[in-house]
Amino acid sequence: MKFPLTQSLRIAGVLIAIGLLIEAWTLHWNSPIGFLVFLGIGGIFIALGILIYLLTLVSLPAKHDSSAPNS
């Protein structure tokens, strides 16, 4: 399922922001479960967001150089 560029950026940004908010929340904890929530839930959101962003980058259509001479 392909999304427009702007929508992909928004989805990536929202996912990363959710992951970062989870990270900020776990910084209040001082227990092993806080560490696991940070990595297991926050980390997944952030990783997913970054992955979507990077896939968006590599999926961008190549620019055609109109000044290149015809062979």
Binding site: L5, T6, L9, R10, G13, V14, I16, A17, L20
Partner: peptide, 8 residues
Amino acid sequence: IAIVVLAP
């Protein structure tokens, strides 16, 4: 991130 999301 909010800037990118709100004004892509």
